[in-house]
Amino acid sequence: MEETRQAARQRRRRRRLMVGGATGLVVTGLLACLVMAMQPDRKEDAGRAAATAVANSQASRTPASPGKKKSPTPSPSEVSASPSAGAKNKKKKPKASPSPSPSSAAPRKAPAAAPSGGRIRPGSTYQGVATVYKAGVGDGACSYGPSADMMIAAMNTTDYETSKACGAYVLVRAENGASVTVRITNECPLPCAPGQLDLSEQAFAKLAPVSTGRISISWSLLSPDTAGTISIRYKNGSSPYWCGIQAIGHRNPLARLEVRAGGGWRQLTRTDYNYFLSPDGSGCGGAIRITDIYGERLTINGIAVRPDAVQPAGVQFARH
C-alpha cells in the first residue's frame, strides 16, 4: 500500500516537471519571438532619429534673405592677428604723393639765398603801373640822403618790405617800348599797390610825358655794372653802447648785415628806415659782414664808430 502511494507521488512530480519544462519552453519561445519582432522597430527608430537630426541641422543653416548675406564666422586665426603683424602695420607710413610735373609746378623759384632778400626775386618780371612824384634832392625813406643821380624811384609798401628793396636797381619797361633803369631810394605808401613804382619826374620822362601821370609797366631786378665800392655809415647817436649801421652803394640788394660779437657773427635787425640796429652795442666798431640776395658774403674791417660819416669799405658784390 505504501509502495503504491510513493509511486503515485513520483508520477505526479514527473508530470509537474514535464508541465513546468513545457511551460518554460513556451515562455522562452514567446520571449524570443518578442525580441525578434522588436528589432526592426529599433532600426526604424534609429533611422528616424538620424533623419530628424539631419533635418534639424539643415533647418539651422537656412540661408539669409538676398541682399543681406551673412559674413562667415572667421576662424580664430582670422579674428586676432599676431602682435608682430600688428606692429608692422602701425609702422607703415603712407607713401608720399609724387611731385608735380614741371608743367603743373609753382612759378619758377629764385636762387636759394633770394628769399632772405625779400619779395623781389632775381629773374622775375613784375607787372604794375608807374606814377610820378617830385623827388626833390632824391632823399627818401631809405635814408641815403641827397642823390647825385635822379634816376630813382619809390617802391610800393608791399614790395618795399621794411626797406629790403632799398638800393635795388630796377629795369622799368613801358608798353611803348621805352625803358629806364632806376635805383630804389624811397617808399610809396598806400594806396600804392603791389607792383607799382613811383618814379621821379626825371625817370618818368624817359618813358612818357610827365603830364601823362600814370602808365602800365613791367619791371625786373638788375645787377648792373656800377662804378665804385660799398660804403658804411653809422647812424647819428651811435656809440659803443648802441649803434645803427647802414650800407650804401651796394650793387645787389642786401639780405642781411652781421657784426662780430661774442666769438661769432650776430645778425642785426633791419628797420624800415634802412639801418641795422645793435641795441646793446655789441659789435659796434668791430668787423661787419654783409650778404646779398645771391648769397655772396663780404667782410669789412676797420670801420670806426663815427656817426653820420660815410666810410668807404673798398669792396663790392659780384655782378649777376
Score class of each variant (00 low, 15 high):
residue 1 M to C: 07
residue 6 Q to S: 10
residue 6 Q to E: 04
residue 11 R to T: 13
residue 18 M to K: 00
residue 20 G to K: 06
residue 21 G to M: 12
residue 30 L to R: 00
residue 35 V to N: 12
residue 39 Q to W: 11
residue 40 P to M: 07
residue 41 D to S: 13
residue 42 R to L: 15
residue 49 A to L: 13
residue 51 A to Q: 06
residue 55 A to M: 08
residue 57 S to L: 10
residue 58 Q to K: 08
residue 59 A to Y: 05
residue 59 A to T: 00
residue 60 S to E: 15
residue 62 T to N: 08
residue 70 K to E: 13
residue 75 S to V: 07
residue 77 S to T: 12
residue 78 E to Y: 12
residue 81 A to Q: 13
residue 82 S to R: 13
residue 82 S to F: 00
residue 83 P to C: 08
residue 86 G to P: 00
residue 86 G to Y: 00
residue 88 K to F: 07
residue 94 P to K: 14
residue 94 P to S: 11
residue 96 A to M: 03
residue 98 P to Y: 09
residue 102 P to N: 07
residue 105 A to P: 04
residue 111 P to F: 02
residue 115 P to G: 06
residue 120 I to A: 04
residue 137 V to G: 10
residue 137 V to L: 15
residue 138 G to R: 02
residue 140 G to N: 05
residue 141 A to H: 02
residue 147 S to E: 12
residue 149 D to S: 14
residue 151 M to W: 01
residue 156 N to W: 01
residue 162 T to W: 11
residue 162 T to I: 06
residue 167 G to E: 01
residue 171 L to M: 15
residue 171 L to S: 05
residue 171 L to Q: 05
residue 172 V to L: 07
residue 177 G to Y: 03
residue 179 S to P: 00
residue 187 E to H: 00
residue 191 P to V: 02
residue 191 P to M: 00
residue 193 A to F: 00
residue 194 P to R: 04
residue 195 G to H: 01
residue 195 G to V: 03
residue 199 L to G: 07
residue 203 A to Q: 07
residue 207 L to W: 01
residue 210 V to N: 09
residue 214 R to E: 09
residue 218 S to N: 12
residue 222 L to C: 09
residue 230 I to N: 03
residue 230 I to E: 01
residue 231 S to G: 08
residue 233 R to L: 11
residue 242 W to S: 09
residue 242 W to H: 09
residue 244 G to E: 10
residue 247 A to Y: 14
residue 248 I to L: 15
residue 264 G to V: 01
residue 268 L to G: 07
residue 270 R to V: 03
residue 277 L to M: 05
residue 278 S to E: 04
residue 278 S to M: 06
residue 279 P to C: 05
residue 284 C to T: 10
residue 291 T to V: 15
residue 297 R to H: 15
residue 298 L to A: 06
residue 300 I to G: 09
residue 308 D to I: 06
residue 309 A to Y: 08
residue 313 A to M: 15
residue 315 V to F: 13
residue 316 Q to T: 13
residue 317 F to V: 09
